[in-house]
Simulated assay, not measured.
Amino acid sequence: MELFLAGRRVLVTGAGKGIGRGTVQALHATGARVVAVSRTQADLDSLVRECPGIEPVCVDLGDWEATERALGSVGPVDLLVNNAAVALLQPFLEVTKEAFDRSFEVNLRAVIQVSQIVARGLIARGVPGAIVNVSSQCSQRAVTNHSVYCSTKGALDMLTKVMALELGPHKIRVNAVNPTVVMTSMGQATWSDPHKAKTMLNRIPLGKFAGESGGSPASVVPAVPVEHVVNAILFLLSDRSGMTTGSTLPVEGGFWAC
Rank of each mutant, 00 (worst) to 15 (best):
I123D: 05
G20T: 00
Q113F: 09
K161S: 11
S147P: 10
A197H: 06
V74C: 09
E68I: 14
N107F: 01
V230K: 01
W64G: 14
L47W: 01
M243Q: 15
G207V: 07
P128A: 06
S147D: 12
L206T: 10
S151R: 06
S247W: 11
S147N: 12
V48F: 04
D43N: 07
G126Q: 09
P250C: 08
L156R: 07
V132G: 00
V95F: 09
S135N: 11
A32M: 02
S238A: 06
S241E: 07
S151K: 06
S241P: 09
A66R: 10
S219K: 15
S46Q: 12
G75I: 06
C138R: 07
R33A: 13
Y149W: 04
A210T: 13
V57E: 09
H28Y: 09
T23F: 00
A85Y: 00
A164W: 05
I204T: 04
A124L: 13
T245E: 03
Y149S: 02
L11I: 05
P56H: 03
A66I: 06
T160E: 03
I172D: 08
A42N: 10
N202A: 15
I112Y: 15
G154E: 09
M183I: 05
S73V: 15
G121L: 12
A124I: 11
H28I: 07
E94Y: 09
M243H: 15
V134N: 00
